[in-house]
């Protein structure tokens, strides 16, 4: 992330995740947010009217506990966000330690970026976070598009695999009144080892 100016709050906030979704994880299929578990790395690209940029990220999620590291180009702008729903902290050389209830608010305060972080654990696993969100499926019955939390999400998958988890998410938030106010977030996703995942095995050490 480039220069980290502390910006004003977003014009189009992300609707907070409903408590029901946080516990049951939206679609009552096998995996719910309680069993959400992944360790991923990739790139995040953000384009908002006020602040844009990109960063390498690493994200470890264990149930509803998460830790996210962002590193900007050339290793600058190291930012660490962690916590559980309702109690989140962010630390960066630029801002020092910040605390808030939602990761969205923290990310915006520290970097000016907008990203629906509370929804991402579900989307990263290829499922909706809320029970009745409008969505379309692809030929292999995987989520193709989804409208949730004020964001339009497009899911892309690895063509050579039948994996249910996306390798790329494109998220758009188009302001009803002024398209120049729209926001876009792109996330590329590489899952680290799936079985005996380092984050989990470290946790048990």
């Amino acid at each position: 992330c480039q220069t980290l100016r502390v910006p004003t709050l977003p014009s189009i906030p992300t609707t907070p995740l409903s408590p029901v979704a946080m516990t049951t994880g939206g679609e009552n299929n096998a995996s719910s947010s309680a069993t959400t578990h992944f360790s991923i790395t990739g790139k995040i690209g953000v384009k908002t009217p006020k602040q844009s940029g990109s960063a390498f990220y690493a994200w470890a999620q264990d149930g509803d506990r998460f830790a996210i590291d962002l590193t900007g180009a050339l290793g600058i702008g190291q930012t660490h966000i962690e916590g559980i729903p309702g109690k989140v902290s962010l630390n960066s050389a630029k801002t020092g330690l910040l605390e808030a209830e939602t990761p969205e608010e923290l990310l915006t305060r520290a970097t000016g970026w907008l990203a629906p972080i509370s929804y991402l654990p579900s989307w990263i696993e290829g499922r909706a976070a809320e029970p009745n969100s409008t969505s379309t499926k692809d030929a292999q019955n995987r989520l193709a598009t989804l409208n949730e939390g004020g964001w339009d999400v497009t899911f892309s998958y690895n063509d050579q695999s039948t994996s249910k988890t996306p390798i790329r998410l494109v998220m758009n938030q188009v302001s009803p009144t002024d398209t120049a106010q729209s926001n876009r977030v792109i996330l590329t996703i590489q899952h680290q080892e799936t079985t005996g995942d380092s984050a989990a095995s470290d946790a048990k050490k």
Binding site: T41, A58, A60, A67, S89, A199
Partner: peptide
Amino acid sequence: VASSKAGLKSSHLGQ
């Protein structure tokens, strides 16, 4: 940070 102590290390550090 607290989470790393609790074993939830984002794997950025080893990358």
